[in-house]
Amino acid sequence: MKKVKVAFFDFTCCEGCQLQVANMGETLLDVLDLIDVVEFREVMSEKSSTYDVAIVEGSITTHHAIERIKKIRKTAKVLIAFGSCAAIGGINGMKNNFDLTDIREYVYQKDAKHFDTIPTRAVHQVVPVDYFVPGCPVYIPEFVKVLKSALMGIAYNVPDNAVCVECKLNENECMYDKGIACMGPVTRAGCNSWCINNGNICYGCRGIVSNPAEKGQKDIMEKYNISLEWIENKINMYNKPRELGELKTNE
């Protein structure tokens, strides 16, 4: 099989997801047998103007970023939105809770006018995306699955059922039974309930299930005495940009 040229790009993010790739260990060696990494700022200095697959980390937060992601989209045959920031907007989306001018001044103070900013968007809200790997950071087994699907040319659908399913299969004690609220019931599975397996709650970093049964969820919140405000804040921590809706091309 001819090696596929893969380039990694980062936009507004912490680059932690790319770090996950660098930390893959032996699997990375197997993957490198199949692909030719032509650009990956985190681990190499070379750059390339041609590539088949673009793996994009980070959300789109400036006008310049819009132009840059459009160029990448034009060059790449396949575009993978990599990590929560790229796939759902992620943490950077919290900015969208505030007035843009106010928040810019709050962050950059007197230099604010030198910094361009737009409401945070996930990559697919700017250009079409072929594959999504949500997660903060990405869950490597899922990334490998997506990469395989991309190389085989078949679709990969992020699971649309709740993290609870995987959590139950891992036989974790339910956070709610411990008196702790957790985002598992509304968050898309696919991470093998990674956080809860390690004693943490689910923060909803993989996006919200498409059909979250509002009435049922409200009952649950009532049962556990959770306020609507609390759950909204938790959802918005990673998922605020979803309010901007789907693809916008006229900017």
Binding site: N161, A162, C164, K168, K215, G216, D219
Partner: peptide
């Protein structure tokens, strides 16, 4: 049906 959130826990367990 109105209560259920279709999490699938009942069938897994």
């Amino acid at each position: 049906g109105a209560k259920c959130v279709a999490c699938g826990n009942c069938t897994n367990v």
